[in-house]
């Protein structure tokens, strides 16, 4: 027995001197990465968002009691601030965010204007009511109606719902969830790293790339669909919303003790260049292309959809690097698939 083990050991030693390979990869502390994500990124994003949502709600209440141009301007500006804050949060629907259906209740668009105008939408918790609430509905009520004052009670009701959702999800995070999240540092489809990264990529692909850019640009249809852009009634906000989301994504990927460091610790190189810098460059290219667009994506799509399609291509290039190359390099389990393999 020992003879064979010895043989194996000798063989192992004999073949470690391949000069073309990196010496050895350092251990990377995944728990520290989870701590960073929870304490430096996700919980602060929730806290900021709750603050902004509370501001929006009080502005809405002030507007409801004394409607004026001044109070309306305050609500509108608080709306834009909170909507931007939501973009910082949207990638992190792992755990409480998903449990309380935040994305579903805060940012499903296009909103159903007919039902909003008819005024009888009922309980906001109903799954059938996801498209008559949240930011898209407020966008319409505040910027798309003849006189927002007619709907100011609904503006308050919808704003209060946003605060409520932000509060319960934040309470979960600062309660028991944070520690459980950090403790689940293992490697399985249900461990925190795998779930967070899967949720992040899902957000990047479906909400950032397709929802904000690809769908209005007409990538998935025969024609451009500017009406399906985000915040179409505000008329000056959708590019900023996109850029805020993109920056949230880049921060999540790039800040210290994050995925970029994880890739670097494993010395992941593709085509002679580190994968982390390629992905960072991809975020940069997308930001540059977005900077050239009209502040309103819908307007840009109507005037010149080609520039939006180019932005889409830049975003798509990073989907491939994130979803194929990065997931493979990190050995992250793609989904909740649990079956034998060989």
């Amino acid at each position: 027995m020992t003879r064979y083990l010895l043989c194996l050991a000798l063989l192992a030693v004999g073949c470690t001197t391949d000069p073309t390979e990196p010496a050895e990869s350092a251990s990377f502390d995944r728990q520290a990465m989870l701590v960073h994500w929870a304490d430096d990124i996700i919980v602060p994003a929730f806290q900021d968002f709750k603050r902004d949502a509370t501001d929006l709600e009080s502005a809405a209440r002030a507007y409801e009691s004394t409607p004026s141009d001044e109070t309306l301007a305050t609500v509108r500006s608080a709306f834009a601030t909170a909507y931007l804050g939501w973009q910082r949060l949207s990638p992190f629907m792992t755990g409480p965010g998903e449990e309380h259906r935040l994305r579903e209740q805060l940012n499903i668009y296009p909103t159903d204007t007919t039902r909003l105008l008819s005024g009888s939408t009922g309980s906001l918790e109903l799954p059938s009511n996801v498209d008559v609430q949240g930011f898209p509905a407020l966008d319409f009520l505040l910027f798309g109606t003849q006189d927002p004052a007619d709907r100011r009670a609904e503006v308050t009701r919808l704003s209060a719902r946003i605060t409520e959702l932000a509060s319960v999800a934040l309470a979960d995070w600062t309660g028991e969830y944070r520690d459980a999240y950090v403790a689940a540092s293992g490697n399985s489809a249900t461990a925190s790293v795998d779930r967070t990264v899967n949720d992040f990529i899902f957000w990047y692909e479906k909400y950032l790339r397709a929802g904000k850019i690809g769908i209005p640009a007409g990538v998935f249809s025969s024609d451009p669909r500017p009406a399906l852009a985000e915040a179409p009634y505000h008329g000056n906000l959708s590019r900023a919303l996109f850029l805020e989301g993109l920056e949230a994504g880049n921060d999540f990927f790039s800040t210290e003790a994050g995925l970029a460091d994880y890739l670097d610790a494993l010395r992941v190189e593709r085509g002679g260049e580190s994968l982390s810098s390629q992905i960072r460059a991809g975020f940069g290219t997308a930001a540059d292309r977005a900077a050239e667009l009209n502040a309103d994506i819908a307007t840009q799509v109507r005037n010149d959809p080609t520039a939006v399609l180019q932005l889409y291509d830049a975003l798509q290039a990073n989907v491939i690097l994130l979803k194929v190359d990065m997931l493979q390099a990190l050995g992250i389990n793609v989904d909740y698939v649990d079956a034998d393999g060989d």
């Binding site: 194996l8 050991a9 063989l11 192992a12 030693v13 073949c15 470690t16 391949d18 390979e21 990196p22 010496a23 050895e24 990869s25 350092a26 251990s27 990377f28």
Partner: peptide, 12 residues
Amino acid sequence: QQRWVHFAFAWG
């Protein structure tokens, strides 16, 4: 995490 371990497993 060690590179030599990967080789040991592969050759072994």
